[in-house]
Design a protein around this nucleic acid. Structure first.
Lengths: 375, 375
DNA sequence: GCTGGCACTCTCGTCCTACGAGTGCTAATA
DNA sequence: TATTAGCACTCGTAGGACGAGAGTGCCAGC
């Protein structure tokens, strides 16, 4: 094909084409049905007829931004089309006062117990967006800052450890034999001397047995405390992932085929690896909202779905992601705004390690243009 | 219709009818398709032809145990049919050694952190049965048994409370102002004297302010500790419910209609009230496995699904339920066996407050006929 | 470069038919 | 009296034909 190939340079998308593409995508987001030239003429105010729009649509299709399900149907956006829309066309949506208040109210309500925070945040995100949500927290390697052993009675004591990231874990230990308070105190001193500030791989059998000898412990208490320590450190290093609201997928017409829905949902169900490929990248990427459209996702199961992710920073090198999964036909603008605000609220509440004492929640201050972070 | 009505007394279901009904239900459980007379002749060893079986089927239908989707299809069981099957016909299935070992292995693996136990148990149940599972724990009203306040530095201390049901909760408190260790110790003594052994409604503003005066606390520490106490007690009294594996519904042909699946799944998603109507009853009902078939469920959304529930006892008046939800065409026998074993395993591990120290799991001993509790 | 008009294409719903599975009934049989 | 073989009947399903409708591509005219 020699001469008549028009060397359609990708960059040259005229203003009118953009307007048409934007209108088409927004209509398609609403209706989930292919959009025809006449419909676009109806909803835009460009003073031209459907025939003109047809010509433009044909070119947009040739450029790869649109496609037709079959010869005689309207157009639907391709992933490249969505990408252009998200990058250049989409108006960054601002949340209304009511919406921000609603989010703040729910965050405050839920933030009382930190334990269940992750799943609660996921629940909030899912309800706000009406898509399945996933919440991921990744903890930076932690060490033990301090040990306390609370003597209860001859057969019972509590281990309390405080971690370098200021979380506190405890465990109640029942013993088949008796110990005296002196032994408990001695163990606490030894553990504070030998087990604080070190990472898991430096807790060796040698360290444990030397501690055991130093304490004169013949009952395996040292092992119990050491193994709790190791478990705690290990659990801190795990990436926790919670998935909520999978059922909301079924409300979307693109998942009306139960097979398709089932595949995606069971992929999400053990959500750990959902974003594994992208986690590092995201963590490096600061706090803006990321949009992964269709084939941009690494996971095969997500190739025709989209993911919107916001990251938050809890301080102490502990970061997290909050995201939603949905069809590529997703209301990116609204979803991005909501997630961004949610993540910012989380960072403010949790960042810097200064958790407000319960019952004394700071009211989150919202500046108008703070709702979407630009970079 | 005067004379030829045969006064089919419900009780008289002949042995052959039972055999036919049982075979039909088991076939239907396998295939999810209406079962015809010829198929039954093929799988049973009653020496009679399909015509005879047709007559029996017609009578079983008249009795209300079977129905026909349309005139010329095979039969499917009605809820009454399933009920008869579950009560009288079903062989109580025994788990194989491999299955029991698998369950034990997973329980042991998961039982290390008690916090996440509920959702983990749900996960196990769901994976074992391939149905969505729900895990519910209801705690008997608890009181605080003991307070410890761990002084960290002038601005930080940890609250550790031990509850009457032997769970331990903690909270790290940051203060905007300084306190000295003496105040912390004084508060611990006062709280142990005044706040132990009492229920939430006896923690009054009067009690708090008198404690505050006694301690000479002008910084609101007393309120912080008191409100943590109240929150802890309140959270213990809540019924917690976890739902896992909703997506597995989509694997069942009866939920291939996405609307139907969506309805049930979103009903399950906030699983708190799923069994609300039946909870009390179940708690009273001892430890046998309960089967609720179709319309036997109180909730409208469950009217054409079935629920199998086992209860377990964690001691200290804390009980829980573990159950699965699926189509009425459910492999009741296998599901009941698995849940029963799982619940028994939980009770053994948690009952009597004697949690084995981690790393020292008792191997659960299984007696052959212990796998299904008869009463 | 835009527009109206028009032929063309493709999907979707509907109608029809043929097929097959399974029943219910009847008459024959042990 | 219980069982069986045979047969007509019913009903859902699959497949094919057909028309309506939506939307396109293209062309000629403005």
């Amino acid at each position: 094909m020699p001469a008549n190939e028009k060397v359609e340079c990708q960059m040259s998308v005229s203003e009118r084409k953009k307007k048409i593409l934007g209108a088409l995508i927004e209509e398609y987001i609403k209706t989930a049905e292919p959009v025809g030239s006449k419909a676009i003429a109806g909803i835009t105010d460009l003073g031209c007829s459907s025939a003109t729009i047809r010509n433009e649509l044909a070119e947009l299709t040739a450029m790869g931004y649109l496609e037709q399900p079959h010869t005689s149907a309207g157009r639907i956006p391709t992933p490249a089309g969505y990408r252009l829309y998200v990058n250049e066309l989409m108006e960054k949506q601002k949340l209304s006062i009511e919406e921000t208040e609603e989010i703040n109210r729910r965050l405050n309500e839920k933030m009382t117990q930190l334990d269940s925070m992750m799943s609660d945040v996921g629940k909030i995100a899912s309800q706000l967006t009406d898509y399945p949500a996933l919440a991921i927290a990744a903890y930076a390697p932690a060490t033990i800052k301090r040990f306390d052993l609370i003597y209860i009675d001859a057969n019972t004591f509590i281990i309390v450890v405080m971690l370098s990231n200021n979380t506190v874990k405890n465990k109640l230990v029942h013993l088949p034999i008796s110990v005296d308070q002196g032994m408990i105190n001695k163990l606490a001193t030894l553990f504070n001397a030998n087990f604080t500030g070190i990472s898991n791989d430096r807790i060796t059998p040698i360290l444990i047995s030397s501690t055991e000898r130093a304490a004169g412990d013949t009952m395996g208490l040292t092992s119990v405390i050491a193994s709790f320590t190791m478990e705690t450190l290990a659990s801190q290093q795990e990436v926790e992932a919670y998935v909520t609201g999978e059922n909301r997928l079924l409300g979307q017409p693109e998942y009306k085929d139960p097979e398709k829905a089932h595949k995606l949902m069971s992929y999400l169900a053990d959500g750990g690896h959902v974003l594994s490929g992208t986690t590092d990248e995201i963590f490096a990427g600061g706090s803006e909202v990321r949009v992964l459209i269709g084939p941009e996702n690494v996971a095969e199961e997500l190739k025709d779905s989209s993911v919107v992710i916001a990251s938050y920073d809890m301080g102490d090198n502990t970061k997290g992601l909050i995201g939603v999964v949905g069809p590529t036909r997703m209301d990116y603008s609204a979803v991005a705004a909501k997630l961004s605000f949610l993540a910012a609220g989380l960072s403010r509440r949790l960042g810097g390690g200064e958790a407000p004492p319960s019952g004394m929640h700071n009211k989150l201050i919202i500046k108008g243009d703070d709702i979407i972070d630009e970079h």
